[in-house]
């Protein structure tokens, strides 16, 4: 049975870009451990010679015409941006 520690949860949360408190990490560690342990049921199956399924329909190389198209108007694109200045998206400083 896999043990999931608080530290592992903090590491995973960081990879997933989720801020997390120590208290939450302890709570999630318990739940994720229970869930991953339940998932280990799959280990009783021998899948050595089984191909993985990524997609259920037999589709390959779905192509479209390579045509240039106009993009959306800037006003439309900015419609849902919370903060913008002079047509540009405002974000926290990334370079000092």
């Amino acid at each position: 049975m896999a043990k999931i520690t608080k530290e592992e949860v903090i590491e995973v949360a960081h990879l997933a870009r989720l801020a997390i408190t120590d208290e939450e990490a302890v709570h999630f560690a318990e739940q994720l451990e229970a869930i991953t342990n339940a998932m280990e049921l799959l280990n009783e199956l021998d899948t050595e010679n089984v191909e993985p399924t990524t997609h259920v329909l037999p589709m390959v190389n779905v192509m479209r015409e390579d045509q240039a198209k106009a993009g959306l108007p800037r006003e439309t694109v900015l419609k849902n941006v919370k903060e913008h200045i002079a047509g540009q998206v405002k974000v926290p400083t990334i370079l000092e």
């Binding site: 998932m39 799959l42 280990n43 199956l45 899948t47 089984v50 191909e51 993985p52 399924t53 990524t54």
Partner: peptide, 9 residues
């Protein structure tokens, strides 16, 4: 990957 294989089964 294990889950993808079991999906095949």
């Amino acid at each position: 990957k294990k889950a993808q294989k079991v999906r095949t089964l």
